[in-house]
């Protein structure tokens, strides 16, 4: 027999935790399933400056911790395991995880996105030895060292700016000749004397002895290969949704994100999606939180037959 719930929330970032707060307060029998750690992508933000209510900014870790406290205060139950499959059987959704199966009439998908890896030789080998996906976590290990950041969006530029507080020099490597990051971040980046940008280039190889020592770069226009001595490389080249296990049961867009209507309903009755996992989400913590609240209300209506 599987444990039975009214609602299962998959993913414990701002979307899932906010849905959890609402569901717990509505006294729905709810289980939140998280495969790694609660908090989601905001854990990687050194400072969240645009979440209303925190005029001086707040670290993503602190914000996540507050959401977690708020959700568990109202009795939200949490299970740490990865979801492998959802099956629809006799008006119930059966959620199979790496550690047990659970059933619920309604589901909120709030699994967000994962960072994209470079996918080049040496990357995996040097994780924790110079390769990092979290400047907030690891910048301090690179005091007065030369580091590189790969990417051109808000995450990459924010990480480069943050690293200037620690590193002696920061080199941003971007595959195009213009940045995607917001104008205010670009202004700060280009004005910073510690940062240089290498345009039109990609990382081909990550190498070193015990720790990372050097990156092999390829210019995408000329094909020229160069070497860059760095002690660390921070990868921020984008995100991909965690939706492979959903492919057979509901509609995804061509990026693999879950398609929803204005009531956050997916193509499968009773299954909702909230936050970064959703097609055309704004990829912001506050939007994810808003989605989480709305999806819990819509799921509650569905459960009550409204």
């Amino acid at each position: 027999m599987n444990d039975k719930y009214e609602l299962i929330i998959i993913g414990g970032g701002p979307a899932g935790l906010t849905a959890g707060i609402y569901a717990a307060m509505a006294r729905l029998k709810t289980l939140l399933i998280e495969k790694m750690t609660l908090g989601g992508r905001i854990l990687f933000a050194s400072k969240v400056e645009n979440f209303p209510g925190f005029p001086d900014g707040i670290s993503g870790g602190e914000l996540a911790e507050l959401m977690y406290k708020q959700a568990t205060k109202f009795g939200l139950e949490i299970h740490y395991a990865g979801v492998e499959e959802i099956k629809y059987r006799e008006k119930r959704n059966v959620v199979k995880t790496g550690d047990g199966s659970f059933e619920a009439s309604s589901i909120i998908l709030a699994g967000g996105c994962e960072h994209t890896e470079l996918g080049v030789p040496g990357e995996g080998e040097f994780i924790g030895k110079g390769v990092s996906y979290c400047a907030t976590c690891d910048a301090n290990f690179f005091q007065e060292r030369v580091v590189a950041v790969v990417g051109g969006g808000n995450a990459a530029v924010s990480e480069a700016l943050y690293l200037t507080n620690f590193a002696s020099r920061v080199i941003l490597i971007h595959r195009r000749n213009e940045l995607r990051a917001s104008p205010i971040l670009q202004e700060r980046l280009l004005a910073d004397p510690k940062i240089t940008v290498i345009w039109d280039s990609v990382v081909k190889k990550v190498q070193g002895q015990k720790f990372l020592e050097e990156l092999e770069l390829g210019n995408v226009k000329t094909g020229k290969i160069t070497r860059l001595k760095v002690a660390g490389v921070f990868v921020a080249i984008g995100f991909k949704p965690n939706t492979d296990y959903l492919r057979d049961i509901l509609e995804l867009d061509k990026l693999g994100q879950v398609v929803t209507n204005t009531l956050l309903a997916t193509s499968q009755p009773g299954i909702y999606a909230a936050g970064d996992i959703r097609s055309n989400s704004g990829r912001q913590a506050i939007i994810a939180a808003g989605d989480g609240a709305a999806s819990a209300i819509f799921a509650n209506n569905f459960l009550r037959g409204l």
């Binding site: 750690t37 609660l38 908090g39 905001i42 854990l43 990687f44 933000a45 050194s46 670290s59 993503g60 870790g61 602190e62 996540a64 911790e65 977690y68 949490i78 740490y80 979290c134 907030t136 976590c137 301090n140």
Partner: peptide, 14 residues
């Protein structure tokens, strides 16, 4: 861990 590290904070409950 360290206080500045977001993921570290949430490894705690696990």
């Amino acid at each position: 861990w360290a206080p500045w590290c977001g993921p570290c904070r949430m490894v705690g409950p696990v």
